[in-house]
Design a protein around this nucleic acid. Sequence first.
RNA 1: GUCCCCAUCGUCUAGCCUGGCCUAGGACAUUGCCCUUUCAAGGCAGUAACACGGGUUCAAAUCCCGUUGGGGACACCA
Length: 471
Amino acid sequence: MSQVRVRFAPSPTGFLHIGGVRTALFNWLFARQQKGVFVLRIEDTDQDRSTDESIQAILEGLKWVGLDWDEGPFRQTERIDLYRSYAMQLLEKGQAYWCSCKAEELEARRKEAEAKGLSPKYDSRCRDRGLANLAGDAALRFKAPLEGETVVDDLIKGKIVFDNNVQDDLIILRSNGYPTYNFSVVVDDALMNITHVIRGDDHLTNTPRQVPIFQALGFPVPQFGHLPMILGSDKARLSKRHGATSIMAYKDMGYLPDAMVNYLVRLGWSHGDQELFTRQELIEKFAWKNVQTSPAVFNPEKLIWVNAEYIKISPPDQVAQALVPLLESAGLAAEAKAVSAGWLAQLVILVKERAKTLVEMVEWVRPYFGQAVAFDEEAAKKFLTPAIAPVLGKLLARFEAFPAFSKQQWEEAFKQLVEAEGMKMGQLAQPVRVALTGRTASPGLFEVMEVLGRDRTLFRLRQGIDRASRA
RNA sequence: GUCCCCAUCGUCUAGCCUGGCCUAGGACAUUGCCCUUUCAAGGCAGUAACACGGGUUCAAAUCCCGUUGGGGACACCA
């Protein structure tokens, strides 16, 4: 068995979307598992819609989710001569012909046929005219087989049979000399020795159009695998109105790349009851037979859960690193710069069980930067009252007696005071929480103090007492 | 309209190929309880599905046919 070679071939007409990432992911997984080659090819033969920014967005997106490619990126626009020469080969062999029908005419005939309830396929009127492209404005059409059937043994869907008589003679070279998708794909997949074409379900009906071209060109036909689509909550194809579809939008929303990969791979693939996988496990356990044949609805809530899990289990320094850009865009650039990576990782540990996304984490982490605390007015009003001020004063005195912070000792001192005052834990804990963090919700008090350190804890306690006495 | 694909809890899915172990399992979400200094996290419990109709068989979620429903494709887009 020769080496597995797969490819991801997006068209650069926008950002890299979630469906594209999933397609790339399955290709990548298979390549890595089989010790094969993952090729990246940019299908930019549509001059009007392709942009360089879009190519950059695709590369950026793939890099973010960690799907590295071994060859490419190849751009089809740099290979135009290649397609032309193969098209000419077909013409010479009599397997293609020039068609002088104008685009508008074809459009009109299609509409007419549809109105009559007929198939909108091309009527092959130029097929046997033996036209030459004298004016240079004809399109080249492939002579599709008129009878028989094309059988595709799909890796995911199994055997699929298409009647050849429903296929029409598709254009392989436009009148402007540019190849069309179905042709350049075949030439490239053949020339790049692609062994397995793994793509979205939406390409399934392109397969019986491409297979005869492989054959006409004398190329071996690769194996095909068609991944079911991703749907929105209304079961319609996933699109902008279902929420963000750009992979990079998820970075901005605070998702971890590993979480995206884990969620996306489980959307259509499973390994028993397992929900969370490391990359290595994914590579080892991936199998076509476990790929779903039916489309899957994208569920943002489960994505959030997966992300929360990854925030909890990923190495804190790694999460901290991913958090930095989010801190920056939240206006905490200077603060993030002022602290050490180690301390930031401590902060992550402090709040990681509470944040489901990095964006949420930014808010959880905000109170721990800087010397002073910013009070939530409502929280301060409710808990930093004149009545509590003297108790906070006593707590401050007890804490000050310790030359250094010790979680056990300080907690002990705190509890003793609560008992001495005849209070309930919460009656003192909440005011202290507000003094320390400015808010009514936070991680455990003594974990907070640990991250804050002795000096800042005492400073903020004084700040809280001051506020309470003036209330 | 034509062609193709698909069909298990609200959602992602296990089970289907190789019928019996399925009183249909797990996860997300949801509900309740527990834990608790707040918010989370966590633990426990609950609600919830084989689209429908025919076959085949001693036996069907599983095999076959049909219906219905959903998706996709029918461009000088990819």
